[in-house]
Design a protein around this nucleic acid. Structure first.
Lengths: 120, 120
DNA sequence: AGTAACTTTGCAATACAATTGCAGGGCATT
DNA sequence: AATGCCCTGCAATTGTATTGCAAAGTTACT
């Protein structure tokens, strides 16, 4: 079952929500899906994206992520026209300088706008 | 009532969730709060921050935001130790280069780690 | 002051995502 | 066969976000 989920995720060009997966992969219980994703996330296989649409979305981790840390610091793009979220693996998140005594562990950059498909 | 909310927000050093406000400002109905914040947001007085904690948080807009666009592109810092979210108004979000035909309207950068208070 | 029009507020109820508890099924090891 | 472990699915709960509606307040006009 997990293989099916992984398979499905690999086919996606964009990040998908739990509900997306639930609808596309019937029959599959939402809770199982939830736990599957959670397991994947804990083991560094997928990353979670909060795009402001209300629901978390998920996508396969490209790089050398592990259970302790996510390393693929790419930008996510949320299209406010089609409501889809894309991973932009080639666009890296720049370092940021923080005030004294702040320790950065992760960073997430979400760009919102209109995606290539919707600008046509 | 809105003045009270605005007042409260101005006093905050960190971003607050609806629940935070509800608890701090009794008696005040959650729905009224929700709509108040929504109005503020639409008029560019506050900005919404999704820090991955599950609930949206809000903070006063520092700069020249208006109903059409938010202009204060500062970084937000989420401390995974104390679960608080801080605005870092001095840390600007750098421009990012997008693939062809992507149009950027907004960008949000969340850094996660340990805040100054928690590193002590 | 009186009233009509509009706005703001609060209660109730709903929608939806996230999460937990529990029991059954599969599979491996002994 | 019995034990133990993990995966799955159903039911139920929590929590946030949101809407509908009616009452209370506000404003503008007379």
């Amino acid at each position: 079952m997990r293989l099916l989920v992984l398979d499905f995720l690999e086919k996606q060009s964009k990040a998908v929500s739990l509900t997306d997966m639930e609808l596309s992969m019937e029959p599959l219980d939402r809770v199982t899906l939830f736990r599957t994703i959670k397991t994947f996330e804990e083991h560094g296989l997928v990353h979670r994206i909060e795009d402001g649409s209300g629901a978390s979305k998920f996508a396969i981790c490209a790089a050398d992520c592990d259970s302790t840390q996510h390393h693929d610091l790419h930008v996510h793009f949320y299209c406010s026209h089609c409501n889809e979220t894309y991973c932009l693996p080639k666009t890296h998140i720049p370092e940021v300088e923080l005030p004294a005594n702040y320790v950065a562990l992760e960073r997430e950059l979400i760009v919102k706008g209109i995606c290539a498909a919707c600008t046509k």
